[in-house]
Design a protein around this nucleic acid. Structure first.
Lengths: 210, 210
DNA sequence: TGTACATCAGTGAACGCGCGTTCACTGATGTAC
DNA sequence: TGTACATCAGTGAACGCGCGTTCACTGATGTAC
């Protein structure tokens, strides 16, 4: 019953090295999955991007599917943490603008490295492991939004997140750059309080000052 | 230079048979692509669903990529036609409700056979041929929405379509059924004019009467 | 009406390639004495 | 301090499978005479 005491000191490699490599694989997969879709890129390409050969992958993850789930979780949890921090700032209106305008920033949307919900939404929806993995973070994002939105906060958070996600998806679908930007601008205007909400550039400048 | 006159009558098969088979392949691909993603299902599975063997596929389409583009176009054009017809009805408010509430119908969303924008959004965004193929239909949907929305119609159409698309994507991402439905309800409430907008069931009944 | 022929949608075997996964091995690092 | 040994992250060849695509063939249908 008693756990056998290891006769040998456990680690031959410098501690933390292994975890660091694992993190590098996660980061690489985060980029490549978002750019090409989970089914659009192979384990070998992910490992190459992480500076490794493909064989070592299974030292860190039991399967590609498990990697997809963990990437989904870590990407969305990072987003939730960011929103959470912003939402706890002193001025709710400023916090709301920062969240909405950075989410809908055309330059950011163009990079294909934007929010998981918009780049891998349908991919994650089809993978039960990934879907379960993001549940907590999704609620976290809604909580952060609720904190800074006016009115019926919960309803407003659900609708506003929908608007933001949809606008980014549609912006990437539009073949015409003007239409692509129009989705983002219209979405921002519909979420943010009326006053000067359309003047995105001014608000972005304001955000940078903060 | 002159086109050689065919000495033989052109068709040995009953005319229209070929086009009918082609349509069957398109329909099958429409179902399977939306359920599994374009990269998640093979040509052989599509042909089997259409009641054929895989070899004959290239008699109808030059490549899987071309099939994806045509499926995207035909699915979204069908949606655009439907919205267009509804939007030309006598009462704008009723038309708006019919469009929004059928798009956000939980039963429909659950089938995975809902709007291309929500099921294959990121897939299509990554495929330039598919993206170009849906440009016209996307504008058509925005036009139909503009026709029935109040206020600043164009801005409102852009934002409302974003809200609908995002709500369906998020509804499928939510692991909890209550949250899944909450996205749809909140989105409908935020788009439809305030009066009784939350009472979705009542409105659905009203829609069936029409 | 009947026979020979042309057409062509669809069949199914085959090809080559890339992917997810496995595994014997390497070599760098730390420990024991 | 130095030698022998244990550990284990990472390597790279290999495996099997499924996929997109090709192609020689079949067989049903319509036309010519």
């Amino acid at each position: 019953m008693a756990e056998p005491i290891p006769l040998q000191a456990p680690a031959a490699q410098p501690a933390g090295k292994r975890a660091e490599t694992r993190q590098r694989i996660l980061t690489a997969a985060g980029h490549l999955f978002r750019e090409h879709g989970v089914d659009g890129i192979g384990v070998d390409a992910v490992m190459k991007e992480a500076g490794l050969t493909h064989g070592g992958f299974y030292l860190h993850f039991p399967s590609k599917e498990a990697l997809a789930a963990e990437v989904s979780q870590s990407l969305l949890e990072k987003a939730a943490r960011t929103w959470d921090e912003i939402s706890c700032g002193p001025d709710r209106n400023t916090a709301l603008r920062r969240i909405v305008l950075s989410y809908l920033d055309p330059a950011h949307v163009a990079t294909a490295q934007s929010c998981l919900l918009t780049t891998l939404g349908s991919d994650v929806a089809r993978r039960s492991k990934s879907r379960e993995a993001i549940g907590g973070a999704l609620r976290g994002m809604l909580d952060a939004l609720s904190r800074v939105l006016p009115g019926r906060k919960r309803q407003n958070a659900l609708a506003s997140l929908s608007t933001m996600v949809g606008a980014v998806v549609l912006s990437r679908l539009a073949d015409d750059p003007a239409l692509a930007e129009a989705f983002l601008t219209a979405a921002a205007a519909s979420i943010l309080p009326a006053q000067r909400a359309c003047d995105r550039k001014e608000l972005l400048a304001e955000q940078e000052d903060a």
